[in-house]
Amino acid sequence: MTAPLGFHLDASACIGCRTCVTACKSKNALPAGRDYRRVVEYGDGSWIPDPEDPTLLAPSNLFAYCLSIACMHCEDPACMAACPTEAIQQRPDGIVLIDSARCAGCRYCEWACPYGALSFDPSTGRMTKCDLCADLIDAGQEPWCAASCVTRALEVGPMDELRARHGELDALAPLPSGDQTRPRLVITPHRDAQPAGRGSGDASNPERDLR
């Protein structure tokens, strides 16, 4: 049996360049305003009087890190359970796919996904999402997002191998807890990473990254 595939994201290496976003956009010919992959920049910080010169301000508790996210091809996909037409199916290798012929475009999957991974294509009236470049996977190649990553922060492979090498962490702030859908994702945390659900920061550009 084919081992389920998933992502490893090295948040300590991701610099938020969005090359993965652009590669995905190019591979899937996505129009402006619609992406399967997003990079969420998360951070916080404040200004305090400079200890050496109180007339000046100095940054305090400043941190920021980036998380490149797309469909997590979850072990328990909420989108698949929500889909009323059974258009969303999971392959033996874990890839969650949408059968366009069955999709009614009701968008319920979009609401059920905690990662905002599904998007509606108004030109076809159907839902769309990352398919982990299934055509490339079937040809033994690497998905474009991982292949294009300039810092090698993104990696696709069998989940058991990724977990054996990188651990079990599957969520950081601002992502939701992995308990909801058991995402096929393992994260190497940034040094300033904050735990999911208990982060003090905010997404720095929600209009762009969380639309």
Binding site: P84, T85, E86, R102, A104
Partner: peptide, 25 residues
Amino acid sequence: LHLGTPLNALRTLANLDESWLSREI
């Protein structure tokens, strides 16, 4: 009118086992 593909409306009854939307219809 909410559906992107109204022609597939009848298929929304397909997932009564899991989907609350199927159950709603």
